[in-house]
Design a protein around this nucleic acid. Sequence first.
DNA 1: ACGAAACTGTAAGGTTGGCGTCAGCTCAAG
DNA 2: CTTGAGCTGACGCCAACCTTACAGTTTCGT
Lengths: 223, 223
Amino acid sequence: MPPKLLLVEDDPLLASTLTETLSIDHQQVDCIGDGGAAETRLSREHGYDLILLDLNLPTRSGLDVLATLRAHDHVTPVLILTARAAIEDRVKGLDLGADDYLAKPFALDELEARVRALLRRRQSSQDDPLTLGSLRLDRQRQLFTLDEVSLSLPPREHRLLACLIRYAGEPVDKARLLDEAFAGESVGDNAIEVYVHRLRRRLADSDVRLRTVRGIGYLLESA
Amino acid sequence: MPPKLLLVEDDPLLASTLTETLSIDHQQVDCIGDGGAAETRLSREHGYDLILLDLNLPTRSGLDVLATLRAHDHVTPVLILTARAAIEDRVKGLDLGADDYLAKPFALDELEARVRALLRRRQSSQDDPLTLGSLRLDRQRQLFTLDEVSLSLPPREHRLLACLIRYAGEPVDKARLLDEAFAGESVGDNAIEVYVHRLRRRLADSDVRLRTVRGIGYLLESA
DNA sequence: ACGAAACTGTAAGGTTGGCGTCAGCTCAAG
DNA sequence: CTTGAGCTGACGCCAACCTTACAGTTTCGT
């Protein structure tokens, strides 16, 4: 499971440079150039492992975004990027719950180092199993258990379910599933429906439901 | 009580890097660069929760240190660090009672992950014989017993089963088996399947099953 | 030293199960 | 009612796995 980053940066040139650089180490980097849009995205999408946040943004400042994020109990690590050398911004940022701070201009090497450092912390939280109702994923062993009994799945179904439980409770659209669970592998659109069908049968008499959200995708929830 | 680590490593640069890295997560890291000194320290000081052991050391090799340790009934988990070339040393190390190994050069992230994993098992009994159902491995004597009667196995089958019972209940992938049980020795992919087959016959009417996890490997479980 | 027995690994053919497409169906939205 | 998205059972392909046979090698007793 590759780490997923969200880059919030309005300068297109810098954004593309960073995206390119970070993509070398990390599978997926989404980019948004607008504070309001970032808030919207983050309210719907809880799967990011790290947020790179510019402070000087259109519509909503980075500090606003961060404040909203923490107010909603998001714990995703945040690395602040800003041109303002102003020291009070840094203090404000850290007070608001940012995890690190980098002043522009910065060396790409240093950014990478800090990103790695923040992502490394992710692993400790990754030691804990993910659970939803009586379904449970031990991420070390890559092993599902349902009602305390081990549930062995074929590789594809396993990946799909792992992806769904990661975003437990929120809808995940098909394109994203294709992207994250089966990156690159030629998986037809219909194939996912078949996996879902097979998974539903396995989860039939448990307290976990795999609901379909028409026009969007699927969502895993507990009864 | 914070975990306490002993690092036995003679390269000063690597030693300081590791000490620094590990100190972030763990309160105390002691470091010793000499095999004989490490033995002395360990004979007096039984409080370590984990030992990181380089194999290539002055005065006494890491394997000697480990052997002495186990001969004195020390049960402290040991993580071996060794150059990738010395493959047969890893097997020796694991046979002598090491708990994991890591080949140099390694990523710091990976080291941290393994250290965490080993510390997590801290309380679970490490010295007692490993048992699963009516199958039991006496690690001192390297002897299996099944339903109280001793089960003598050919060397290869023994190593395979030992590796499987060590990860009892979780799937172990073929690559890992090849690596840990038969490191280096030219063992074709199909050979494992043959061993498994032979082991299954021996375990046929017991409460231990050797299940295959398609696309992954094998898993030992009790009925 | 010699032969027998046990161990080891490869080859070959049979079996299984995951995978993905299809065709026909259901069902919700407009 | 129409339409298109999603559901579902069936089918064939293929890779992974099982099983047996056999030949080369080591171990061990005599």
